[in-house]
């Protein structure tokens, strides 16, 4: 399958217009304008972000800069330093990694802004943070903090049983998880500028991430062979906007950057996801729940660059110490599955 994402000319345009018409209006009621310094006002003379397609281009553009890289979950400034020194392209700041969220139970929420701020002050790479599904106020807070990306994440306890956050009106870009093509395109139409597989976070078992990537690939292959009439029917079946589905079928890939996430624990797992067509990899509990975090983090970074070179993969997989213990997804109780959150 072709996996080349074309430069954004025209692409961002189409993506941004979808879902924008209602988004801006409703958001203006709920979100106060935070930035009103004179500089940004006058700069709009030469800066062309005022147009929605350019705003989306800038959001999706950062995701493109992360391609071929590893984004690591960190719970404090010290771990963030280790991740940066290992070559992470970004860190995800959160209070508990998914493995601990599973073990401890209870409601998982947005992290303490103080802790996110400390991480932002510690590293120079982009810092992402998670908000609960549908919790647009957590998103407003994260935007005010200045995080570089928001993950509207099923790993946290959902705040809204029906609605995802309307993401277009925010200046900060969003990444969202998906299990299949319909879910991915719904998130993009809401304004997600980056997609990831949901996988099954905190398990160290890659099977669900593989399933989600394989499903998206198979659905795109099917769509690519369809006539416009058939695409209309498919759009209805999978609950995806027709225009986005059509674009995806033309490109033969998702129209935004797509990362692997949820259960990646080894360099081989990371390379597997890359060979399946992912643009990069999130590693959550897999690094800091393992024996030698720094070494494993470096190994996974090397594996994502040289994902087609088994010799390099063999070399970096040596002597990594203990991997995270993990939970077998096959023996997991249905109600423990995080991937089922969101639709």
């Amino acid at each position: 399958m072709a996996t080349i994402l074309p430069p954004t000319d025209g692409l961002a345009n189409g993506l941004a217009k979808l879902g924008l018409s209602n988004g801006d209006a409703s958001h203006n009621d709920s979100k106060p304008e935070t930035k009103s310094d004179v500089t940004s006002e006058t700069q709009s003379q030469i800066r062309s972000d005022a147009q929605p397609e350019n705003k989306f281009e800038v959001k999706a553009g950062l995701a493109r800069m992360l391609k071929g890289g590893v984004i690591m979950d960190v719970v404090n400034a010290e771990q963030a330093r280790i991740a940066e020194d290992a070559g992470a392209v970004a860190v995800m700041a959160l209070e508990r990694v998914p493995a601990d969220i599973r073990a401890q139970g209870g409601v998982a929420r947005m992290s303490d802004p103080r802790m996110i701020k400390e991480i932002m002050e510690t590293v120079t790479i982009p810092v992402m943070a998670k908000a609960r599904i549908g919790h647009f106020v957590e998103c407003q807070i994260l935007e005010a903090l200045g995080v570089d990306y928001i993950d509207e994440s099923e790993v946290l306890t959902p705040a809204d049983a029906t609605h995802h956050v309307e993401k277009h009106p925010f200046s900060v870009p969003f990444v969202c998880g998906c299990r299949n093509l319909g879910e991915a395109l719904r998130r993009i139409s809401e304004g997600a500028a980056m997609i990831r597989t949901k996988g099954e976070a905190g398990t160290g078992d890659v099977i669900e991430a593989v399933r989600h990537m394989r499903t998206v690939n198979a659905e795109i292959s099917r769509a690519a062979g369809m006539s416009p009439e058939e695409l209309r029917v498919l759009a209805k079946e999978i609950g995806a906007p027709y225009e986005l589905l059509k674009k995806t079928a033309e490109l033969r890939r998702l129209p935004v950057v797509n990362f692997a996430a949820g259960g990646v624990a080894t360099p081989a797992d990371a390379a597997l996801m890359m060979q399946l067509g992912c643009d990069g990899v999130f590693v959550g509990s897999g690094i800091f729940k393992s024996g030698d975090a720094a070494k494993r983090a470096k190994a996974i970074v090397q594996a994502v660059t040289h994902f087609r070179d088994p010799k390099v993969l063999a070399e970096v997989s040596m002597d990594l110490g203990e991997a995270m213990v993990g939970i077998n997804c096959g023996t997991m109780d249905e109600k423990e599955r995080l991937a089922k959150r969101g639709w």
């Binding site: 890289g69 020194d85 290992a86 070559g87 992470a88 392209v89 790479i125 660059t305 040289h306």
Partner: peptide
């Protein structure tokens, strides 16, 4: 190309 310069320089050095 564009990307994260810290990542690129670390990966370059290790490769």
């Amino acid at each position: 190309p564009g990307g994260e310069s810290t990542t690129m320089s670390l990966v370059a050095s290790r490769s």
